[in-house]
Design a protein around this nucleic acid. Sequence first.
DNA 1: CTGAAAGCGCTTACAG
DNA 2: CTGAAAGCGCTTACAG
Lengths: 341, 341
Amino acid sequence: MNISLKDVAARAGVSVKTVSNVVNGYRHVTPATRQRVQQVIDELGYRPNLTARHLRKGRTGIIALALPELGNPYFAELADAVISYAAGLDYIVLLDHTNGRRDQEVLFAQGFRARLIDGLILSPIELENEDLLARGNDAPLVLLGEREYEAPHDHIAIDNVAAARTATRHLLDLGRRRVAFLGARHGRVRRVAHLRLRGWRAAIAESPGAAAGDELVAATDGYTRGDGAQAMARLLDSGVAPDAVFCYNDLIAIGAMRTLIERGLRVPEDVAVVGFDDIDDGRYCSTSLTTIAPHKQAIAQAAVDALLARLDGGDEAAQADPRYIRPGFALIRRESTLGRP
Amino acid sequence: MNISLKDVAARAGVSVKTVSNVVNGYRHVTPATRQRVQQVIDELGYRPNLTARHLRKGRTGIIALALPELGNPYFAELADAVISYAAGLDYIVLLDHTNGRRDQEVLFAQGFRARLIDGLILSPIELENEDLLARGNDAPLVLLGEREYEAPHDHIAIDNVAAARTATRHLLDLGRRRVAFLGARHGRVRRVAHLRLRGWRAAIAESPGAAAGDELVAATDGYTRGDGAQAMARLLDSGVAPDAVFCYNDLIAIGAMRTLIERGLRVPEDVAVVGFDDIDDGRYCSTSLTTIAPHKQAIAQAAVDALLARLDGGDEAAQADPRYIRPGFALIRRESTLGRP
DNA sequence: CTGAAAGCGCTTACAG
DNA sequence: CTGAAAGCGCTTACAG
């Protein structure tokens, strides 16, 4: 059924070594031989069996990217960047969903798909330090997103506290005094939501006239537009009357704006809104969204580069100390804080 | 370095066959043996080499999903559905970008990654019939999205003409008489944009008082929000004053709404807008978007099911005639045509 | 420049 | 219930 190197070799009257040489484009094959072999390959429709090649080489050229979910445009855009960049370096990306569940994250972190993938880029939500320590000496792992792990892995993350502080300060600089935070999380202190909340607190603390009460902080269950819409509604219902909102991410911000408009409040005149992520949606909202833009391209490249350095960089590189890489971010000012020009 | 079955077998004092039996959870291993082997596996941190298994079995359990790009939420949401559904059936999904480029699509269609993947789901944009005919007897291929190919492959697609007609008729039923179409494409007649344009024409033709001129049709280069915003601006600048717009997809519709609002036009009072795809964004726009919702879940399941039938269904199933499956769609009415309740 | 042969790590008839 | 051995289809020292 399947045509193998051997079949091609037999038909072309050469050894499998020669066919292999032709297939892999090695020099030092006489043009005549090359042509004859190529002709048989075309005739037979031969295609190399990658699985066999992988087994033999001990490498697959596949890296896995494990993200919570693709439904969030931030992750979709990031995945897009990783896939494109990796493709340019001749690596294939296997995309996995963890749904932000610890058991799934543990599965991937601990070497699921061993030797099918050369390495793994993981963006954890619930993963704990101990899960990482329990990890065997598997394929290299690169972590995405700020978190305080002690296990020795390359780690790519922007400075969330600084970014959140920048966003909040922008609102305060506009003269807002009651800046709410939407998207706090109950539970573990390690999470990114806590870091962004910390940034919010820091900016408020620096600004004498600004309200700082906990009633300005609204938690959400998830990170979706619906969560944002609900949280904003709850906040308004509770009698808190913010004049600005800094949101955990753009989706929550978009949901919040939706609620504000439904309640007859104007953005930014009555309530200014800042998001986080710089997803495409935010640019084309009826009121375009001011946001923090983590440099996704830089994140994707840093992650892939870090992984490939361990894979292709030779022994010193593979053994090098883990690095913590901090791509930059920028505040993108749009109508939700500045109004229509 | 890497621990193999053989290492485990040696240490446990059994044959590799027995270890394999334990690893694969076969019955008929005495509990004592099983336990001893399992202990050695844990001690050594043995993990099966999937590449070797794949080579031996001739199957990998991996299916590829080749989409234009993940940046478009429609494809991201669809990918999400495919990955989740396939995971439930113990299949891994390898996600690929074609960027809607013919050369990329040809690459995948013609058996790129042979024997690494068991089958392929491809959503082509530029692929031609001849590209498909040139295809060898490779892994099964399922096509996604309406197109008129003559090659024998399973094909999953909603009825775009009917859906576009439904959308346009909705606008006409609301009393609109100058319904524009945004997102026509120059070039090949096979494309989905032509089908949706055909549906628009059909609905207009059925409605005596409706304007039908070509000046109501605006082409776009791509399918993004930016394309929609520009096309809407061009349409308005050209002096055409539509009272409704049916857009090729939700992204174009969102871009169009953005332009309308910038120009001081109200949605839906001055111009009603309908999109296509039912992406999440549309639900939370300041003016939520009326749209055609293709049943993504059904599409994803049909695609995976069709592929797996060929893979796992035995000989008759593998040889069965190609099927054209037509998942349904629904018109979702929201504020962009009905106004705020 | 080309060939013969080993071996990557599994699974699976075939015996016993 | 367990073992010895073949073979999936490649690549790669090792010869020549």
